[in-house]
Design a protein around this nucleic acid. Sequence first.
DNA 1: AAGTCGGAGTCTATCTTATT
DNA 2: AATAAGATAGACTCCGACTT
Length: 348
Amino acid sequence: MFFKINAECHIGFKKLTAADLGIGTSHQTHIGLYEGVLNFLPDVDVVSTAMLICDGYCDIIKCYFDRIENPDGTFRSPKIRIGGSEESVVKRIREFASADTGADWYLLWFGLESEELVFILLNANSEDYHRLHSYISDNDKILDESHPAFAAILQYIEDKVNRVSVDLQKDLEVVAQTGRGVHEYKPKDIEKANKYFCQTGRAGEELINEYFDKECAAGHIKSYLWMNASRESGLPFDFIVSSDSSAALHVDVKSTQFDCNQPIVFSDGEIRFISEYGRDTYQVYRVFDMSNEQKKLCIYHEISSYADAILAKQNIFGAEISQLSTSVNLIKYAVRPNIFNVGQEIML
DNA sequence: AAGTCGGAGTCTATCTTATT
DNA sequence: AATAAGATAGACTCCGACTT
């Protein structure tokens, strides 16, 4: 389970009013929430990001959160504001609602472990609403452990979040490796994605280790050496494979939880190695669908022309910035593998 | 100058909890 | 069980900023 609910473990549920949705005569510019959920947030001026989910839609957008202030300076009802000119959760919710003004709209909200906020907008005619409605009644406001169907509700919601946010998770897998666009995500999510990615990488190498074992037994290759067998070697490849017919191959394993079109990330060191030493010997073993029962492998070879092209560009860039007494350190490249030639898919 | 929009505070109906 | 007190969600109003 990638996304996990906050330790607070409270879920807010309300039927949105006309004023909340910005229809009718009210000038209300916020959606009122209930006390008791999102208690971990401060009282004023919270500009955060939140995940908004509606049917199959899922995106991370700005969320302006605060609480109504009493005359004595204390705070009460939390609310999310429409915010300025930028896209915001309230704005997007009102857009959805204005597309179907005849329907009733419901909102579920809660925090994740990472303190990311999640809002699930439900059309009363939707499948999601009907499913949840078998557990929740209209006068439920805050759902917590004391609710008889809490486990079922939580299961359904976590499933929903995980299912609908696959694209975001794919993005996170790349972000964890490259550091690109880090600001869009919470550090905790990235940390977690990083851990996941390391585990995935190790598991991928173990699979390939078994694969080569079988290849050896079948006589397809003579021998192989797993560089990272005991610990991370830091070399730009993971295996050296010897066979009778050709020179020793350098094999780098690139694993992903997702499909084979997930970007492959190369480090600067790997690109240099491919171009300088690995011309005809370097192969990338992409292990994919790691989160499925059936893990698969496809092999990319002849990637030296790609490495040459990248290196040429990098050298131009390096020469440019050297005029500013600056050099390049630690570049990462994320590439869509569909630009490479690929052989047959192999079932692992 | 008039109109519109957004933010903030205030009022109140309604719901919840405590007390008798 | 009836009533009072307290809490709070919902919606209105005011005000200032911005737009036309």
